[in-house]
């Protein structure tokens, strides 16, 4: 049995502890917002947070989450109110959308640590997340926009 919490809800699972967290989230917990892209930490589509830090869930065994707090895209906000989500809508970021969960989860860690990121900060945080549709210029703009929203007065 492995116990941890996902999006602030406790879960207890009887799974092989070596199973990648990604597949436990997707197949056992039906949280399919976290995506499979490469299986080797090359693309970032599977990015979630473990205790607030970005983790590629396709290579992290579920045992790594034991006793910890996992946050997935479904837990970023309940109502699209996270500044990044609002900025993503404002900049019309997604195309196919498949990589965007991972992009957002990476960007969320960036903004927590660097509330006013420079372009260089964005390059250093986001280069591990591939977007095949080429939404990078909009992701960059949206991160800056979210940072502005946050500094202009938090949530709204």
């Amino acid at each position: 049995m492995i116990s941890f919490s996902v999006n602030r809800r406790p879960v207890k699972l009887d799974v092989d502890p070596s199973t990648p967290l990604l597949w436990v989230l997707r197949d056992n917990l039906a949280l399919t917002g976290t995506k499979f892209g490469c299986g080797m930490a090359q693309c970032g589509a599977c990015t979630v947070h473990i205790d607030g830090e970005a983790v590629r869930s396709c290579v992290a065994a579920v045992s790594r989450a034991e006793g910890k707090e996992v946050t997935t895209i479904e837990g970023l906000s309940a109502d699209l109110s996270h500044p990044l989500q609002r900025a993503w809508i404002a900049e019309d970021v997604p195309q196919c959308g498949y990589c965007q969960s991972g992009q957002l989860m990476s960007a969320a860690v960036l903004l927590r640590e660097k509330p006013r990121p420079t372009d260089e900060d964005i390059d250093q945080a986001m280069t591990g997340n591939i977007c095949r549709c080429g939404t990078y210029p909009r992701i960059r703009k949206a991160i800056h926009r979210a940072a502005e929203m946050m500094s202009a007065g938090g949530a709204k």
Partner: peptide, 15 residues
């Protein structure tokens, strides 16, 4: 389609 692509709700074939 942006809202459902940024909250994990959009359903792709793999989902």
């Amino acid at each position: 389609d942006t809202p459902e692509k940024i909250n994990g709700k959009a359903v792709f074939g793999i989902d």
